[in-house]
Computed example of a mutant assay.
Amino acid sequence: MQDRLFSIIPGYEALDAARRNPGDRLFVSDYHGGHPFVDEYLGDLAVTALPDLGDITRYAAVDEDLALRSRIADFHGHYDGVQRDADEVLAGGGSSMLISSFCTWLALSGVKAVHYVPPVYYKFAYLFRQFGIRPQPVADVHAFQPDFRLHLPDEKTVLVLTDPIWYTGRTVPIQVLDEIRAWQAATGSLVFVDNTFAYMQWDGTLPEAAARLDRDRTIRMICPTKFLSLHGYRCAWLLVPRELRTQLSHLHLNLHGEISLADRVFAHRACEVMIEGGGNGKLLRYVQDNYQHLLDKGALTDTFEARTGYFVFGRPRIPRERLLTMGQDFFELTGYPDHVRINLLNTTALEAL
C-alpha cells in the first residue's frame, strides 16, 4: 500500500522540470497568488524599510517571541472558539520546514509506519520515502467523495490528515473529524492536521472543524501566507500538545535555524489583519468572483463545487495538451482523468481558459 502514496513523486519531479521550460503551455495549476489587496493586507510593511521594522543586527528568534505566540493563541481563540496559550504554539518558517521537522521527529522517535487520509501534500511522500517510513492509507477515496469510508486501525499510531482538501476547494466533513476524535480517545493516537489552507471558507463558516480534535493528541499546521495569499513571506506555525512543544521546537531550530526579521514581523501583521482588520473576506470574495466568471463563460465542462481556498478541480473546455497542469495523479485520485487543478488567482490563466 505504501507504493500508492509514493506513486505521486515522479509526477512532481517531472512537473518541476516542465514548469522551468513550459514552451507555449500555460501553467494553470500553479502555486502563486496575485490579488488587489496586497498593500491593504501588508499595511505599513508595504512601505517600511526593513531596518525600521526592528534590529537587523540580531537573529529574529521567532519562536522566542512570546508576544507573537500569544497573538497566535488569540487568533485561534477568535476563530476556533478554543482558548489557547503560547505554550501550545511553535512558530517557524514555511509549512515545508515544519513538515520536515515533524517527519524528522517521527524518524528519530523510531516510528516505522504512519497512517494517513488521502490526499497528503507531496512533501510527506518525499520525506516518508527518505526516512523509510511506511505510509498506510485508511481510506480508498477522498473525504469529499460520496463513498468515502474510514478504516482506522485498532492500535495506537500516527495519522496524517489534510483539511481542507486544497486542490478541489472542499473541506473534510465534520462527521469525519468527529469519528477521528472518537478514535483518538479509544487508541491514544496522535493526529497531524495539515491546515495549510484553513480559514478560507467562502461562506465564512467557523470554527475550523479540526479544532474539534483532542488538543492533547493533535498537531495542527497553520500558514498565514496562504490565507492572505502573500507567499513571498515565509512563516507558519504548529499548534502542539504542551508536552511536545519543547522537543519539537528544539528540533526545528536545529534543523532550520531562524527565519528573517521580515517574516517574523509579517506573522504579527497577519494575526492583526485576521483578528482586527476584517480578515481575508475581500480576498475570498475576489476568488469567488473569478470562479463564477469561469463558470459563466463556460470555461469548465465539469467541476467539483469549490467552497474554500483558491483552487478548483475541473475539466477545461480547451484541450489539456495546450496547458501545463496538475491532474488526478498528483493527488492520489482516480476516476477523473481529464480534470486539473486551476489556480483562481492566476488571472492570465483564467483569461486564457
Rank of each mutant, 00 (worst) to 15 (best):
R245T: 04
L253K: 13
H250F: 02
C223V: 15
I259Y: 01
L255I: 07
R245Q: 14
A262Y: 07
S229K: 08
R217Q: 15
I259V: 15
M221H: 08
H250T: 15
I259T: 15
H252F: 02
R217I: 04
R245N: 06
S229D: 13
F227V: 06
V265T: 14
H256P: 03
S249T: 14
H252S: 13
L230Y: 05
G232S: 09
L248D: 05
S229H: 04
T246M: 06
S260I: 01
A267E: 07
W237P: 03
M221G: 05
L248C: 07
L239R: 01
M221T: 01
L228Q: 09
E258P: 01
G257E: 11
E243H: 12
L239A: 04
R234P: 00
S260T: 15
T218S: 15
R264L: 06
L230V: 14
W237K: 06
H256C: 08
L255D: 06
T225M: 11
C235L: 01
D263F: 04
H250I: 12
H252A: 10
E243R: 09
L248K: 02
T225V: 15
G232T: 10
C235F: 02
A267H: 13
S229L: 02
R242S: 09
T218C: 14
L230F: 06
L251D: 06
R242P: 01
R217N: 14
G232E: 13
A267G: 08
E243C: 03
V265A: 09
H250A: 14
R242I: 05
R264E: 08
P224S: 13
C235P: 00
N254S: 13
H268K: 10
L228D: 03
A236P: 00
A267F: 13
A267I: 09
L253G: 05
E258R: 01
M221V: 08
I222R: 02
L238I: 09
R220P: 00
F266L: 08
F227N: 09
L255T: 10
H250E: 15
L251Q: 05
L244K: 05
W237Q: 12
P224C: 12
M221K: 08
D263E: 11
P224I: 14
P224Y: 12
T246Y: 05
H231W: 05
C223N: 15
R245S: 02
P224T: 14
D263H: 10
H268D: 10
I259N: 01
I222H: 12
L239H: 03
L238C: 10
R264K: 15
L230I: 15
A236I: 00
H252K: 01
R234Y: 07
H268C: 11
F227S: 02
N254L: 09
P224G: 12
V240Q: 00
H250R: 13
F266Q: 05
L248H: 04
R242T: 13
F266W: 06
I259M: 07
T225E: 12
G257A: 10
L228G: 03
H250D: 15
L238R: 03
I259L: 07
S229V: 07
T225Q: 11
